[in-house]
Design a binder for these strands. Structure first.
Lengths: 114, 114
DNA sequence: TTCCGTAGTTCAGAAATTCGGAACTGTTGA
DNA sequence: TCAACAGTTCCGAATTTCTGAACTACGGAA
């Protein structure tokens, strides 16, 4: 298992963020993590929508979100805790996340990220 | 040559818009069309960046932008005139286009769409 | 220690998408 | 009718996405 990669704020790329959020399934995952404000484990995220996401697919989705800089993942024992990087992304690209979540009809919560 | 398809405002899908604008080449094309405010022909759009876009690829890019609802294309004789649908998109998804263009470092012009 | 269960990752092949040159369509003008 | 032009469509190659199966990593029990 290779270590998790997280881009620095200054390395965030708009194209990666838009691509990551151009998939409704990933948006649902991200919105859930951002809304929770605290850790979201993969298992808990697997059945948000109308189907159960296969875990290999889910793992890929998490990787896309992580490498776009939208979430941060930390291994805690056997599980992975994910939390959003909304604040960092927002500092770099003001208003972007909010506009996107609003467009999807998912108004973001106010800064409840731990 | 099949007729051009343009989604109605109420049929605009955020995922299609984000996908369309997750490619820097398409963003450059869209920003040019939106910035021009008037018609942009494919030929004029082919070499905005560091390379000349092959015309079959350009045609695909235009189709993606058009079917996402970001631009409107009209055939005028031998050429196609494209103009942005920023205002319509903005009515449906307020702030989205502006946030995206700003993230790409392409601050949008003020409503100069004809 | 060894074994087991859980959480998530990686592998690999099938399916889908993207890219771009070549051929094509449709229009204008000579 | 013919040629030139603007853009589209076709199609094969390359790339990407999807997901079941195999795997790694950790923690707890014996």
């Amino acid at each position: 298992m290779r270590p998790l990669f997280h881009p620095a704020v200054e390395d965030l790329k708009p194209e990666a963020i838009l691509y990551a959020l151009s998939d409704p399934e990933r948006v649902a995952i991200f919105a859930q993590i951002a809304g929770l404000g605290s850790s979201g484990t993969c298992t808990a995220l697997a059945n948000l929508g109308s189907r159960v996401i296969p875990k290999s697919s889910l793992s890929q989705h998490m990787k896309v979100l992580r490498e776009a800089g939208l979430i941060r993942g930390e291994r805690h024992g056997v599980e992975m805790r994910n939390h959003s990087r909304c604040q960092e992304v927002d500092r770099r690209f003001p208003g972007l996340i909010q506009a996107i979540l609003s467009a999807y009809g998912r108004p973001p919560e106010q800064s409840n990220a731990g």
